[in-house]
Amino acid sequence: MTAASGDVEAFTLLGLALSLIILRTYVRFDLVGLRKFQLDDYLMILTGVLFTAELVLAYMVVAKFDGLTNSYMTPEERAALDPNSYEYYQRVSGSKIQVAGWSIYVMTLWSGKFCLAIFYSRLTMGLSQFEMRVHIAYILLGTTYIATALSILLSCRPMNKFWQIDPDPGNTCQPTVSKVYILVVMILNVLTDAFLLFIPLPLLWKVDIGLKRKISLMVLFSGGLFIIAASIIRAAVVLTSGPDGAVQGSKWACRETFVSIAVANIPIIFPLIRSCANKIGLSALFSSSGRPSNSHPLTSKRGTGHELRSRSNRRHNPMSIPGGTAWDSDEQILANNNHVHVSINGNDNGDNESDDHSKTKGGIGVTKEVTIIRETAGSP
């Protein structure tokens, strides 16, 4: 890949990422208004800023420093390099950029992970089993980010050895090929993405809808698999690409980060995508199949008696907002012997008790329905 094509790819990824963030912000503003923005809304804006900085640094590695760092040099080449030469300046500056680039790369990835975890906390509201997983995710993300950041900054002491040319500072002080950098970041990145997948997929697998729609929703929330693949590919490329490792590593870092941003934003803007598809006659792409998505309450068949169905006060997901136009129908999840309705991109008219279906505009609303059986004394 030439430098020119790499520049085109980098700016294309930046444009797409910022477009997704803008669309997400628009959808969230339309749903809840600026005053009710959640932490992940602001955190995603910060993620966009970090991604922009990451791409700028990756561009500088190629455009200004020719991909040169303190790596891929023999002892003879190190000793012969004049400290006053332009190449020496490029190698020192390129190494500094690598340290900064790795740090911002990790910040961007983990910022996107936190956005996803916060989104899942709304998705699983009221479901204790899944809420616990989200709480564990917060702890896991916090500890792994600290571990990763410290491994980047403290793996080489004193820090100026990160850009030392002569003598050879050793592998851990060569940020382009440092095995500490590559392996710690990859392992913890894969671990956290795998755990985040563990939150929504079991929940969605229980959705009482057609198989086609169930699979499409699971694919929608399975983007972490692409991040895992990109992380592994990036590590393999850096370790095997030789002197071109700095350039190729930077490119794969940008690709991986873009995928992470897309994964964190597409579930939010999905109702807008579906709405646009409906307007241009592509509604079949997002239609349900199989049995209808209307919910059916659980009933017990223990003898005969008077059956009373009472619906608990609905705990509406904060992603819901009264008013607006419905984008989709309700979906049902059966968990813990309660009926749990997951309304994906419906409409909430603001009446918690007047309708059998919880409706949200552009979000995922969660309600519970419990069936109570009262047996009459003396009945068979």
Rank of each mutant, 00 (worst) to 15 (best):
S300M: 05
M159Y: 05
P75F: 13
L55W: 01
K212W: 08
L272Y: 15
P297C: 08
Y88T: 02
S231L: 05
A10D: 08
M159P: 05
L141M: 15
S128E: 12
P243E: 06
D355N: 11
G363D: 15
G15H: 04
V134C: 01
M218K: 11
Y86H: 08
L55A: 01
G242Y: 13
G67N: 09
M44G: 04
G323F: 06
S216Y: 05
D41N: 05
P175G: 05
G249P: 07
S289I: 09
N349F: 01
D168I: 03
G142V: 12
F221E: 08
M319S: 05
S283G: 14
M319H: 02
L201K: 14
F51I: 11
T143H: 01
Q98A: 03
T257K: 07
L43V: 12
A3K: 14
G170W: 15
D328N: 03
N84E: 13
N347M: 13
Q332A: 04
L220V: 06
G67Y: 12
L188T: 01
K206E: 08
V342M: 10
M186I: 04
M73F: 02
L150P: 01
F11G: 04
S354D: 11
G33E: 04
A235N: 06
P292W: 00
P322G: 00
K179P: 05
I321K: 02
N313L: 00
R133S: 09
R35T: 07
V61P: 08
T371M: 04
A236F: 10
T192I: 13
S379E: 13
P169C: 03
S103F: 15
L201Q: 14
V263T: 10
S260L: 09
P175S: 04
L153G: 02
L20R: 11
E77W: 10
M107W: 14
S95I: 05
R309Y: 12
L153P: 04
N336P: 10
Q129V: 15
L13Q: 06
P292N: 05
R35P: 03
